[in-house]
Design a protein around this nucleic acid. Sequence first.
RNA 1: GGAGGGGUGGCCGAGCGGUCAAAGGCAGCAGACUGUAAAUCUGCCGACGAAUGUCUACGUAGGUUCGAAUCCUACCCCCUCCA
Length: 415
Amino acid sequence: MHRFRSEFLSTLASRGYIHQVSEPEALDDLFCRERVTAYVGFDCTADSLHVGHLVSIMMLRLLERTGHRPIALIGGGTTKVGDPSGRDETRQLLSDAQIAHNKAGLLRSLSKFLDFEKGSALLLDNAEWLDELKYIPFLREVGVHFTVNRMLTFESVKLRLEREQPLTFLEFNYMIMQAYDFLQLARRYDCRLQMGGSDQWGNIINGIELARKLDGRHLFALTTPLITTASGQKMGKTASGAVWLNADRLPPFEYFQYWRNTEDADVGRFLRLFTELPLAEIERLERLQGAELNEAKKILAFEATALCHGRAEAEKAKAAAEALFEHKGDRLDGLPVVEVDRDRLAEGMPIIELFMLAGLVQSNSEARRLVRQGGARLDDRLIEDETMRIDLDRFKGGAVKLSAGKKRHVLVRPR
RNA sequence: GGAGGGGUGGCCGAGCGGUCAAAGGCAGCAGACUGUAAAUCUGCCGACGAAUGUCUACGUAGGUUCGAAUCCUACCCCCUCCA
């Protein structure tokens, strides 16, 4: 790979963020020469971002730290169209209300990592220009620069056609919308670079070409590799769903645990990508052998959690993990808390039901199995009787710890 | 337009009148081992129930039968080949 001189690109390169860059030398020169504005787009398909978005977010942070200007572009407009890439069926159309709700959630995710208050990072919504487009003028200005011939060669389109899955004309337009976004950001904010996942390369190039043809602008593309775990799992996806960034979707303790349970082979790579520790420190950590490597995992978990939820929450999660797994102290307040109506407890609640309320199991049957297989614990005592009831007397200490297996724990408190 | 094949649990996939809540694999959960890792081994793995059990489920809707995932009819959807 090209040796970069600019702080931004050389840092990205040495930390493993770069998959492809258009015109690396020219972009590097640009970064050395001036304050550069660059953007990443996020569609409003859910009300929180997840770990899969983290690589992009980290790049925006680095941009900010190295004296450039990041733009987080929320896809309030493009979400109405729906990105077909990576999907073999049409996305469900979201209502305006859902989009607004999701947008609020994304905002919460993003502002954990970027400071939009000071104005060093910009938060924009492409609905701003997409909503007011006029069909015929748009087609005449932008549509003429896209040939269907070329659009049909795109991976996202080919996939649908090959599988004979419908691709609606609405979705077919997504790539044009994204190209138009880049054009608008270039015109309005002098944005020069779009970053994104490797699957976005084609869409980004479209924007670059559009801006060149229409305005003679010189724009750039940078994509990140698809991050997978050593065993081939897509980053941020677990069996129980995405690893969300918003605390109302995933408690900080569980976020901490996600990182704490990183596979050995991923520790170094993840420290580079998902923390801001100096490289020298990371090199020292990843050299640790065997059980020693757990120290590196704890640091990874702490740093990653601190970036997302703040240091205070990270400390709490860390303390709870230590109390739980290493019997150091009894700081359990970092655990996820579930509140249960006092009245319902007063009557004596079946332990099975409590497991359901705590969200540790999906059905009564599953709770029974858990007890029968010796995986259910109440304040560290094995529950042997699945018909056991629990009443208010149990809660003299305030809260009770309910455990499913060795790793999943919840504090239950009467309300 | 013609001929054939198929739709089964989160996914893949066997079953082709009763012994079928449905083989096997993957994923998942619990246990053992360990380092809160990986690998391995054991058990579990539709719902409800303390339990005999009850209910729901094999594309959809009807039907035949004491009894249907399995047979019949109609419909919907997918795939392959020929034109």
